[in-house]
């Protein structure tokens, strides 16, 4: 296998990881600050993709579509937080799982009711379509490079937000001591709504960005949701840095596993059996990774508390 192909696959893994980060960042932030397990995060991703598709269809502008996606997901997130989620903070994880599972059902079928049963169309903008040639002669789609850049940019922005701004200080204080921050006169419920909307907006952005190269359809959020959970658990729940590391680990493991495991098995098996066994193992790879990480470090790579 050539070096170019390997380099290209590493880029693919990186891109997949960065997209997972956008989902995982919101999820881990919400858990870190409010202690909430939000299964409905995938629904916000789906809402982002659907609104992006509709607005892109109306206006023809991808940028407006992205803005609409973030706004719609943030609005849906804030609404859900005000109506349902805020009643769940003092309940245990089990109740949170059930309630947000119920929200998935409502969001999915609601979306199908509004938009119909068929997938929607969302395409990448002309300016970003097609491949570019990278140093070393790698032909790589420009849009995917933009995805990597956007994701890393968001990671940087989130890092700055949390370490350098007033809101960031409040968020960190909220993670450490909830009573204290309320005592200091911070409007805790407003902070929670804000954090939830921020996480939702990130999920909506991911949905819109990914929707352009995938299928915008009902149920698109659940597979990503599971992966995002894998990511934050590997990284350590509540840690943005952990989410970034976890996302890139998962992205690389999944992509490279899918490519190299069948090749590996071909060394000592006949090709079609090797393809089959290797592919099966590849589909289990990230879960094996997660189990190994947790057995080794029960609170994830960067996790402080259980």
């Amino acid at each position: 296998m050539s070096h170019i192909l390997i380099a290209e696959q590493v880029l693919n893994g990186l891109q997949f990881g960065v997209m997972l980060f956008l989902m995982a960042a919101g999820l881990t932030l919400i858990f870190g600050v409010m202690g909430l397990i939000n299964l409905a995060h995938g629904s916000l991703y789906m809402i982002g993709a659907f609104f992006a598709a509709v607005v892109a269809g109306w206006t023809g502008s991808f940028l407006l579509a992205l803005i609409a996606a973030m706004a719609a997901a943030a609005a849906a997130g804030a609404l859900v937080e005000l109506v349902v989620i805020r009643r769940l903070y003092d309940k245990d994880h089990l109740d949170q799982v059930l309630a947000t599972f119920a929200l998935i059902l409502i969001f999915s079928e609601g979306t199908r009711w509004v938009f119909g049963s068929f997938p929607l169309f969302l395409d990448i903008p002309d300016a970003l379509s097609g491949p570019v040639t990278l140093p070393g002669g790698i032909q790589y789609p420009l849009y995917r490079l933009v995805l990597i850049g956007t994701g890393l940019g968001v990671a940087l922005g989130l890092g700055l937000l949390i370490t350098r701004t007033r809101i960031g200080i409040q968020i960190r204080a909220g993670e450490n001591d909830r009573e204290m921050i309320a005592a200091l006169g911070v409007d805790i419920s407003r902070l929670y709504t804000l954090v939830f909307a921020l996480g939702a907006a990130l999920a909506g952005l991911a949905g819109a960005l990914v929707g352009a190269i995938q299928s915008v359809q009902v149920g698109m959020g659940e597979p990503v949701l599971i992966l995002a959970f894998v990511v934050i658990v590997i990284g350590g729940i509540g840690s943005i840095r952990g989410a970034l590391v976890g996302a890139i680990l998962v992205g690389l493991t999944d992509t490279l596993g899918g490519v190299f495991l069948p090749e590996l098995f071909k060394l000592f098996m006949e090709p079609s059996a090797a393809t089959s066994v290797g592919s099966s193992l590849a589909s289990m790879a990230i879960y094996i990774l997660m189990a190994v990480v947790l057995i080794w470090r029960p609170t994830g790579l960067f996790g402080a508390r259980a």
């Binding site: 397990i37 599971i226 089959s276 592919s279 099966s280 879960y287 947790l294 029960p298």
Partner: peptide, 25 residues
Amino acid sequence: RTSGVYFIMITLAFGQMFFFFSISW
């Protein structure tokens, strides 16, 4: 060895392993 959310997720991980294995068996 894990607890809380980590326990929820590691049991989920084992479930997914069995699921994907059975699909390709």
